[in-house]
Simulated scan of single mutants.
Amino acid sequence: MLHVLTHQILPVFSMLALGFLLGRANKISREEAAAINRVGFLVLQPALLFPLVSGLDFSEFRVDAMAIYVGCQVVLFALAFAVAHLLLRRDVIEAWLLAMAVVFVNSVLYILPIAQLMHDGEAGIPIRAVVAWDSAVSFPFFIITTDLLVNRGGSTGKTLKRIAGNPVLIAVLLGLLCNIVALTVPAPVMTALDFAGAAAAPMTLFALGVILSGQSLLPTPTVTAISALKLIGFPALAWVMLHLGERPEEWNTLLLLCAAGPSGAMAFALAMLHGVRTDQIAPVIIWTSVLSLLSLAWLA
Rank of each mutant, 00 (worst) to 15 (best):
M1Q: 13
L2Y: 09
V4L: 12
L5T: 06
H7T: 15
L10H: 07
V12C: 05
V12Q: 07
F13C: 02
L16K: 04
L18Y: 04
L21H: 04
L22Y: 09
A25L: 12
I28G: 06
I28E: 05
I28V: 15
S29D: 13
R30T: 13
E32S: 14
E32K: 09
A33D: 12
A34M: 10
A35H: 05
F41M: 14
F41R: 13
L42P: 00
L42M: 09
L44Y: 06
P46H: 13
S54H: 10
D57K: 15
D57P: 02
F58Y: 04
F58W: 06
D64Q: 12
Y69T: 03
C72V: 13
L76V: 08
L79F: 03
F81R: 03
A82I: 06
A84M: 03
A84H: 03
L86M: 11
L88Q: 07
R89P: 04
R89N: 14
D91I: 06
V92I: 11
I93P: 03
E94H: 14
A95F: 05
A95T: 12
W96S: 15
L98A: 08
L98D: 07
L98I: 10
M100Q: 15
M100L: 12
V102Q: 08
S107R: 05
S107W: 01
S107Y: 03
L109T: 08
L109R: 11
Y110I: 01
P113T: 10
P113V: 09
I114V: 14
L117W: 00
D120C: 01
D120N: 14
G121Q: 10
I125T: 14
I127W: 00
R128K: 15
A129C: 08
V130I: 04
V130L: 04
V131M: 09
D134T: 10
F139S: 03
F142D: 08
F142S: 11
I143D: 05
I143R: 01
T145P: 00
L148V: 06
L149T: 02
N151R: 11
T156I: 00
G157N: 04
G157L: 08
L160Y: 00
G165L: 04
G165K: 07
N166D: 13
N166W: 00
V172C: 12
V172I: 13
L176R: 03
C178G: 03
C178R: 09
V185A: 05
P188N: 13
P188H: 10
T191V: 01
A192L: 09
A192T: 10
D194E: 14
D194L: 01
A198P: 00
A199L: 12
A201M: 10
F206C: 07
V210C: 08
I211G: 05
I211P: 01
L212Q: 13
S213T: 05
G214Y: 09
Q215R: 15
S216T: 13
S216G: 14
L217C: 09
T220S: 15
T222M: 02
V223I: 05
A225I: 08
S227T: 11
S227I: 02
L231E: 14
L242I: 07
R247Q: 13
P248R: 13
E250T: 11
T253A: 14
L256E: 11
C258S: 10
A259I: 02
A259M: 03
A260N: 10
S263D: 12
A265R: 01
A265T: 11
M266E: 07
T278V: 15
T278C: 13
Q280W: 00
Q280H: 11
A282E: 06
A282Q: 07
V284S: 04
W298K: 02
L299H: 03
